[in-house]
Design a protein around this nucleic acid. Structure first.
Length: 296
DNA sequence: GCGTCCAGGTCTACC
DNA sequence: GGTAGACCTGGACGC
């Protein structure tokens, strides 16, 4: 039997801008119905994962949990975390308000990037975005969830645990997940986390300066500049631009008359946003996404 | 149907 | 520190 929970949101929170902030809502165990703006996610629970649907409702969020036994406090914590309800963006908005082309960001309450309940899940998904088309990213994450995730109450499967990911070998990743040359990276990462040698969740609260943290992330196989910067953004550190081919091509179109240029020029363009430059470029490059949708 | 290119890059070897 | 070449896969594209 299902249960309905309600979670109050802070002023200046946009559900639609958050769930549609980047491609994560298209990757299992997220599912987004952009017509009805229903965000489904399979949450880890006490015995068996549970599927829940999150929708915007008045001054908060309605969470319809499919059923099963679950820790309400933990589920609420996960929802707060994935939607970044506790992330202060005032300083960022002060900067975007000073920029003519980014003045839309603050009134829209944009800038919250959807993330997974665990840093580990975001790491695996980030690996799935490297050097491939978005369609292949979706194939790999779908395979991971459907072939290694635990079935949930209410349908779907949870994102697999580090232990589950560490229980299969490189051959499985190549043949079943279609991860190709990335396969040993998944094995190394999941074994490190499952054994306790690596604790990425601690990065959410660590005081380590960002350059040092980036160095630590880059010491992992498969995490280069883009992947490390992307993960740092999801951790709430926006110093790096996380330039990939898509972001570069968008910049060329919008700010460089469709001509390629060196990364240094892109970095100069966003320098004025200081430690928020990674979020500034992302908002700038995705502005048209929100023109195409009906927003609250 | 087939070959080529490239996509939400990174690693290694070499200079 | 900078760079060339290799690397899985799937989809788009040209022929």
């Amino acid at each position: 039997m299902g249960r309905e929970l309600f979670l109050e949101t802070p002023p200046g929170f946009s559900f639609r801008h958050t769930v549609y902030s980047h491609g994560w809502s298209e990757l299992l165990p997220f599912r987004l119905d952009a017509e009805t703006w229903r965000l489904t996610y399979v949450f880890r629970a006490k015995s068996k994962p549970v599927s829940a649907v999150v929708t915007s409702s008045g001054n908060g969020l309605k969470i319809d949990v499919a059923g099963g036994r679950f820790d309400e406090e933990r589920l609420i914590r996960d929802v707060r975390h994935i939607l970044r309800l506790d992330e202060p963006l005032e300083e960022f908005y002060e900067l975007t308000n000073l920029d003519e082309r980014l003045r839309w960001v603050a009134p829209s309450n944009a800038g919250r990037l959807l993330r997974s309940p665990t840093v580990f899940e975001d790491m695996v998904k980030t690996l799935c975005t490297t050097n491939c088309s978005w369609s292949l990213t979706r194939i790999m994450t779908t395979n991971l969830v459907e072939k290694l995730g635990t079935r949930a109450v209410g349908g779907g499967s949870a994102f697999p645990t580090a232990e589950a990911l560490a229980s299969v070998d490189e051959k499985f990743y190549r043949e079943e997940i279609k991860a190709g040359y990335r396969s040993p990276y998944f094995v190394e990462l999941s074994e490190a986390v499952a054994s306790g040698r690596l604790d990425p969740e601690a990065w959410l609260t660590t005081d380590i300066p960002t350059p040092e943290l980036k160095k630590e992330i880059k010491s992992l196989k498969g995490f280069g500049d883009y992947a490390a910067d992307n993960l740092l953004k999801l951790l709430g550190r926006y110093d790096g631009l996380a330039l990939d081919s898509w972001l570069r091509s968008q910049f060329y179109k919008k700010h460089n008359r469709e001509r390629t240029c060196a990364d240094k020029k892109i970095e100069r363009h966003y320098k004025k946003f200081g430690s928020w430059r990674g979020l500034a470029i992302w908002c700038d490059m995705t502005e048209r996404w929100f023109d195409e949708k009906l927003f609250d």
